[in-house]
Amino acid sequence: MIPYGSQDISQADIDAVVAALQSDFLTQGPQVPLFEQTVASHVGAKHALAVNSATSALHIACLALGLGPGDWLWTTPVTFVASANCGLYCGAQVDFVDIDPRTYNLCPKALESKLLAAQKSDKLPKVVVAVHLSGQPCDMTAIRVLGQKYGFKIIEDASHAIGGKYKGEPIGNGRYSDITVFSFHPVKIITTAEGGMALTNSDELAVHMGLLRSHGITRDTAQMTHAPDGPWYYQQIGLGFNYRMTELQAALGLSQMQRLDIFVARRHQLAQRYDQLLAALPVTTPWQQTDSYSGLHLYIIRLKLDKICKTHRQVFESLREQGIGVNLHYIPIHTQPYYQRMGYKMGDYPQAEKYYAEAISLPMYHTLSYIQQDQVVAALQRALAV
């Protein structure tokens, strides 16, 4: 089976993890801050906070921005459920904005229309989570302008996008958002096994997220209510969580960061080759913004169902039967039973639903060979045949 995604673990990665395992610290040692500094420097952000998952990063980002009961979080329906669930964790309500039919990201025009209506009913969002699906950045210029006009905070869910660029600058630099979140899950561009990171240029947000990831505890005397009782002293000054990343994970991430640019460049080679190999088939290949450099976590095609005699499911199942581990990213969140119990229903977001009826994620990862890629394309040709 050729998977849709796969980690690339080198001997250097293994050696880095073994060195951490043999060190004096398995957690709360030097590797985590070094990993944070490395990622922050690479993308041009002031602060980076490593956590145990991107979901945790989204959660503490929302809390640091003051999201709570009575507030609204808006995001795209075409994303993993964590992009929306993070709002519910805070006691807020969640709503969605339909996607752009070319980029599959949150549509700025749809966002503006929804904001105009929400302003009249006094239900403007406090936070908008802009998800860079597949690694292609959203139209962050337009979203930022709307944020300034309507007063909402912006989180970039860049779980797919480390190593990508927007308008020539690294995604994660915070120019267009308050907080950016990366994921280091094994199928992502680089991995720490499980793990995530929140990046910001705000000192205040960084301090707040730092407290939230570790039980609300501080050893910083400037944050304490009184002088320390002794060198052992710490204070819990808020309610936080155990969202820390381990030293082993950070060591792996540090090693992987050395090859980040290589990984992304290889993904672009594979994507360009896919574009050429699929040009004559009845599928829509990914459209790329000219001012963006995608992280290319995913390569998503859309079937031209009016030009083939197979259903979406038949094509998908045929590929799986031929040993191609395709996937579908994602089932629109508003169609999930949990969210439908909140009142969402089919028909609410037509572009997202049309996308779901046609989309298939083909294998895309650094070590995918041209021979394997040819096998994927040949299998797709067979799956599409009458």
Score class of each variant (00 low, 15 high):
residue 153 K to F: 13
residue 142 A to S: 14
residue 165 K to S: 05
residue 141 T to L: 15
residue 153 K to W: 10
residue 154 I to W: 07
residue 163 G to K: 10
residue 169 E to W: 07
residue 143 I to T: 02
residue 174 G to Q: 00
residue 169 E to P: 00
residue 126 K to A: 12
residue 174 G to R: 00
residue 161 A to W: 05
residue 184 F to V: 05
residue 169 E to G: 01
residue 146 L to C: 03
residue 184 F to K: 02
residue 178 D to K: 01
residue 134 S to D: 13
residue 140 M to I: 03
residue 156 E to Y: 06
residue 168 G to A: 09
residue 178 D to R: 02
residue 141 T to I: 14
residue 142 A to Y: 06
residue 175 R to N: 09
residue 179 I to P: 04
residue 181 V to W: 01
residue 178 D to G: 04
residue 129 V to C: 13
residue 171 I to E: 05
residue 185 H to S: 14
residue 162 I to C: 10
residue 160 H to N: 10
residue 182 F to D: 05
residue 141 T to S: 14
residue 129 V to H: 11
residue 155 I to P: 01
residue 179 I to Y: 09
residue 182 F to L: 08
residue 168 G to I: 09
residue 176 Y to I: 02
residue 156 E to P: 00
residue 145 V to E: 14
residue 171 I to S: 09
residue 149 K to P: 02
residue 134 S to P: 02
residue 167 K to E: 14
residue 163 G to H: 10
residue 132 H to G: 11
residue 143 I to C: 06
residue 130 A to V: 12
residue 180 T to R: 10
residue 149 K to L: 14
residue 180 T to P: 01
residue 157 D to R: 06
residue 169 E to S: 08
residue 166 Y to W: 13
residue 171 I to M: 15
residue 153 K to Y: 11
residue 169 E to I: 06
residue 130 A to G: 06
residue 159 S to A: 15
residue 170 P to A: 12
residue 181 V to Q: 05
residue 177 S to F: 07
residue 150 Y to T: 05
residue 152 F to Y: 14
residue 130 A to C: 13
residue 177 S to C: 15
residue 150 Y to A: 04
residue 153 K to D: 05
residue 182 F to Y: 12
residue 175 R to K: 13
residue 131 V to Q: 10
residue 169 E to L: 13
residue 156 E to K: 05
residue 152 F to C: 07
residue 134 S to E: 13
residue 185 H to Y: 13
residue 146 L to F: 07
residue 179 I to G: 06
residue 184 F to I: 10
residue 174 G to N: 02
residue 152 F to K: 04
residue 133 L to D: 00
residue 183 S to D: 04
residue 147 G to C: 09
residue 167 K to C: 11
residue 169 E to T: 04
residue 135 G to E: 08
residue 170 P to V: 01
residue 163 G to P: 01
residue 176 Y to E: 05
residue 146 L to A: 10
residue 153 K to V: 01
residue 151 G to Q: 07
residue 173 N to E: 06
residue 143 I to P: 01
residue 165 K to P: 00
residue 173 N to M: 07
residue 181 V to E: 09
residue 185 H to A: 15
residue 143 I to H: 03
residue 185 H to E: 15
